[in-house]
Design a binder for these strands. Structure first.
Length: 639
RNA sequence: GCCUGCUUGGCUUAGUUGGUAAAGCACUUCACUCGUAAUGAAGAGAGCGCCAGUUCGAUUCUGGCAGCAGGCUCCA
């Protein structure tokens, strides 16, 4: 009796196991396939290695790769595997850290040799060898002193530093063959579990993420229990590459960058410029419909303005050097707010004027360090759908709610249904009274709750001048992007001494709300390109239809029809080249246009067109009016 | 800014152990007049990111700069 323990499973079944049996054996009793899939297990809710033994009645929950926890453990073990291989190849290497990340793992190394992707083959081969050696991965618990001695003796100074920070008397390490690493665990039972893996990239990374520290070499990789899963993941990476907005930007003739113009300064080509124009026009009109006033301000302003606003002090890093004009310093505007404030303060405002909402498609210029530039998503000059709302304290809540609803509506129109919302509260360094922060934070909270919008709190992540709500959208392949931000500001109204006359005849200070819904137009378009994979819905498509003739006889007809459609504000192109229909169809498909219209003798005769929709390989013959109606319907529906 | 790698016609790439470069697509012309994912042929197009240096000679070697990629750091 005493030699057996009861193991309670998640479905409340109970099984008996021999006292001291390993989890691996116990799981084998439940099922062979589960035993094979098991990565680790939770015993009495604590994740442990499968090699650990059970000595008392316990609950058991098997962890497989299907769960986030399973992936984390598996990838962490894979990172150890890689580190072991690297250490075998480069004995002088010093190990830093090697955690699991979103879709794999990395390990940071300090090494005099430079590792490049050309070395991946060698490292992967060594990893394979270690997998085939089927080394047991064993946990050991050491005293602080013993642990320090082991890593000191082997010259692993980063590990020594980590151990010293642990301030723990019991240090767990994991051993697999000749390799030992400091680690909390748990891990898979054997190197043989990590069947398929791939090293993906190598990059520099600062020790502990601090710029002042030494730069280490980081190798990224991923791994899966099954070869098929690895293949699928690599395909996904290929897919992401195919929808990269930088590639599509060139292929679809949307935009480009030019060495001579400068890094981070996008040039909008006809197709991209029209896309921008469509979004700009739509966004502007939506603002006007919601009672915003339109603002336009110059791209430069005197540096004094930014002294008043505080940007010269707090935002200097991101601002360009002054331009001298008539012996005065002018600065390329890094933000729209200061200039916009001057519109509000240009005259006496009454409480009756509030809320006063000013909207601008405002272009700003910010210095970004050369290494951070990235396609359209990180540039040095960009345009924000920026607005500032000046309101009374009692109006904040309604304004915030209005902005929230507006934002969600807009994002939906652009095809972003899934989003996550964050409320960022007061950071350590901040301006404004406790009372103001309290009011603003609770107002933001109330607004979210009244609209039944689920959100998470990001404590201390607010801006120094006020709390904010950030909205992250999820694109078609599940990546998150932050675009929208709604911020309450106590700082600028003070700095610019903004006032309105209340019904008591006295001056009062309004509250300012900054908000951008799409954020930067450049970045938003970059995200849109990837989200739609270049297949823009009809209302956004730079070219909605390509018209093509079958033989030379219909060429003029096609050109005339194109002119007619263009004159009626349809975005049409004609392909009257002397090529086969098959060839032109193929070409048009690669341009991802929503409609392809083929016109042969029959169509000219019947005054019809043969329409082939994107993604379909059948065509429908219809009159030109019928076609126009379809396009109009889709444009109105923003489809 | 930092680390690693990269930079050859519009695009994708080949190549030269240093003797001024090759292909496919795109483009132009000609022929074909063709019915829903590539008709055929011919032609034009780069001096190999920029600036120096080494050399009889540099696209190839060295240095600097710029740009790009992947990261790190940063991101009001």
């Amino acid at each position: 009796m005493n030699s057996e323990v009861k193991i309670k499973l998640p479905d409340s079944r109970e099984i008996l196991a021999e006292k001291g049996a390993s989890l691996y054996d116990i799981i084998g009793k439940i099922g062979k396939s589960l035993q094979k899939a098991a990565i680790s297990a939770r015993v009495n809710e604590i994740p442990v290695d499968l090699s650990s033994t059970v000595h008392e009645n316990s609950s058991l929950q098997v962890i497989t790769f299907d769960t986030a926890e399973g992936k984390d453990i598996f990838w962490h073990s894979a990172s150890h595997l890689m580190a072991q291989a690297v250490k075998r190849i480069y004995p002088g290497v010093r190990l830093a850290i090697g955690p699991s990340i979103d879709n794999g793992f990395y390990y940071d190394f300090e090494l005099d040799d430079k590792i490049t992707i050309d070395d991946f083959d060698t490292i992967e081969k060594e990893m394979e060898k270690i997998v085939n050696e089927a080394l047991d991965i064993k946990r050991e618990v050491l005293s602080l002193d013993d642990a320090l001695k082991i890593f000191r003796d082997s010259g692993e100074s980063y590990k020594v530093e980590l151990i010293q920070d642990l301030k723990d008397n019991e240090i767990s390490v994991y051993r697999q063959g000749d390799f030992i690493d400091l680690c909390r665990g748990p891990h898979v039972r054997s190197t043989s579990c990590i069947k398929s893996f791939k090293l993906l990239s190598v990059a520099g990374a600062y020790w502990r993420g601090d710029e002042k520290n030494k730069m280490l070499q980081r190798i990224y990789g991923t791994a899966f229990p099954d070869k098929k899963d690895l293949a699928r993941y690599l395909e996904l990476l290929e897919e992401a590459k195919k929808r990269d907005h930088r590639t599509l930007g060139r292929e679809l003739e949307l935009f480009s960058f030019d060495n001579e113009v400068g890094a981070g300064l996008p040039l909008w080509h006809p197709n991209g410029a029209i896309l921008r124009f469509i979004i700009d026009k739509f966004t502007t009109i939506e603002h006007l419909k919601r009672g915003y006033n339109l603002f336009v301000v110059p791209h430069i302003a005197k540096s004094d303005l930014y002294k008043t606003s505080g940007h010269l002090e707090f935002y200097k890093e991101n601002m360009y050097s002054p331009i001298k004009i008539d012996d005065q310093d002018y600065i390329l505007k890094p933000m729209n707010c200061p200039s916009q404030i001057k519109i509000f303060t240009s005259t006496m405002r009454s409480y009756r004027d509030l809320p006063f909402r000013g909207f601008e498609m405002g272009t700003v210029y910010r210095y970004e360090r050369s290494g951070v530039l990235h396609g359209l998503t990180r540039v040095r000059g960009f345009t924000q759908d920026d607005a500032h709302i000046f309101c009374r304290e009692d109006q904040i809540e309604e304004e915030i709610q209005g902005v929230l609803e507006f934002t969600l509506d807009m994002l939906k129109v652009f095809g972003f249904e899934e989003k996550s919302i964050y409320l960022s509260t007061r950071p350590e360094k901040s301006v404004g009274s406790d009372r103001n922060w309290e009011i603003a934070t609770s107002t933001l909270k109330n607004s979210l709750e009244k609209l039944k919008i689920p959100y998470k709190v990001d404590p201390g992540e607010g801006v120094f001048y006020g709390p904010k709500i950030d909205i992250k959208i999820k694109d078609a392949i599940g990546r998150e992007w932050q675009c929208s931000t709604i911020q309450v500001d106590f700082n600028l109204p003070e700095r610019f001494d903004i006032t309105y006359i209340g019904n008591d005849g006295q001056k009062h200070r309004p509250i300012m709300i900054h908000r951008a819904l799409l954020g930067s137009l450049e970045r938003f378009i970059g995200i849109l390109i990837e989200h739609y994979s270049g297949k823009f819905p009809t209302w956004l498509a730079p070219v909605q239809v390509i018209l093509m003739n079958v033989t030379e006889n219909e060429a003029d007809y096609v050109r005339d029809l194109k002119k007619l459609l263009v004159s009626q504000e349809f975005r049409a192109e004609a392909d009257a080249r002397n090529e086969s229909v098959g060839y032109k169809i193929r070409d048009a498909i690669s341009k991802k246009v929503p409609f392809i219209a083929v016109i042969g003798a029959k169509e000219v005769n019947d005054k019809t067109i043969s329409i082939r929709r994107r993604g379909e390989n059948k065509s429908i013959t219809m009159t030109i009016d019928e076609f126009k109606k379809i396009v109009v319907v889709e444009m109105n529906a923003k489809a």
